Computed example of a mutant assay.
Amino acid sequence: MDMKKRIHLELRNRTPSDVRELVLDNCRSVEGKIEGLTAEFVNLEFLSLINVGLISVSNLPKLVKLKKLELSDNRISGGLDVLAEKLPNLTHLNLSGNKLKDISTLEPLKKLDNLKSLDLFNCEVTNLNDYRESVFKLLPQLTYLDGYDIEDREASDSDGEVDGDGVDDDEDEEGEEEEDEDGEEEDFDEEEEDEDDEEEVEGEDDDEEVSGEDEEEDFGQDGEGEEEDEDDDEDEEEAETGKGEKRKRAAEDEDEDEDDDDDD
């Protein structure tokens, strides 16, 4: 896909002035030059042209707000003076994987007063003796060269980003707050579950107590029934004893009557 068509697709029905970031990696440049990019992109802050076959950046429009430019894996060998002219507020420049051979080709970058970070990985210039010392001396405004400062301290992630990091930080903070809220909700749910479990256990204990009371009542009823049975047995025995005594008395009375008859 050529660069013009890619730019049209990247707009997605937006106007160029609405675009802050534009990524055109791996599309085709015509004759090694930038095409389709105009000064209408007045608010563009990040532009990426990785591996698009660039030989020259002479066709760059003036982009006053551009801060980060990715030009790695192209065939640029010079002509960097246009960068200071067209991109006065550039802070991050990646030229790794290009055809830069001499320190002198970097001299036009002296005019980029705000340049903080420069990447030249896999460029022949990095093979020169005292390469790092020479570049830092040539470009005193630089803080990082190839990701490290003059004391060989690695750049932090925030130093590698464009302005607007605060927005990302706010989003991260909001995400953390949401996570915290989710965590609190989860803890609350867990507490509710624990309370439910406790209630269930208490309910089971109550059921056990109730069943125990029922058993006691049943036992009491059984005991009372047994006592009543015993009383009935005693009454029957007494009744039988009474009958026996009556029979004995009747028999004795009969004997006495017989005796009386004999005396007569």
Rank of each mutant, 00 (worst) to 15 (best):
H8K: 14
T15W: 04
L95N: 05
E226V: 10
E176R: 10
E226F: 04
R6I: 06
I76H: 03
D235G: 02
P108Y: 06
D197I: 03
G242H: 03
D172H: 12
K111E: 12
N98M: 01
M1I: 11
Y144L: 15
G79I: 10
G166D: 15
E133V: 12
L118N: 13
M1D: 09
Y148L: 14
S17C: 07
K99H: 12
L83F: 05
D194W: 05
I150D: 15
A84R: 02
D157Q: 13
E234S: 04
G203N: 12
E208P: 01
D214R: 05
N122W: 09
E254V: 09
E45W: 01
E31V: 02
I76E: 14
E21Y: 06
D231I: 10
E234W: 01
E199P: 00
R247D: 11
S29D: 09
D206G: 04
G244I: 03
E208Y: 06
F188I: 12
D214N: 04
L9W: 04
G223F: 04
D262E: 14
H8T: 15
T143I: 13
F41M: 11
D207I: 04
V42L: 12
E124Y: 11
D146G: 02
F219H: 09
A239Y: 10
D255H: 07
E186A: 14
L54H: 06
S56N: 14
T126R: 13
E200R: 04
L90G: 01
Q141T: 15
E252D: 08
V57A: 12
L11M: 14
D214Q: 08
R249W: 07
L95R: 13
V42C: 11
E216H: 03
D232R: 10
D253G: 01
E224C: 00
E191T: 03
E238P: 00
D263N: 04
D214S: 05
V23W: 11
E200P: 01
R12H: 08
E254I: 10
D25V: 08
E154P: 02
G32W: 02
E215P: 00
D168K: 14
T143W: 04
E176V: 13
A239V: 08
N94K: 04
E173V: 14
E208V: 10
D206A: 11
K111P: 00
E171Q: 09
R247W: 03
N98Q: 03
E45H: 03
K4P: 00
S29R: 06
N59A: 13
E213F: 06
N26V: 10
D165G: 07
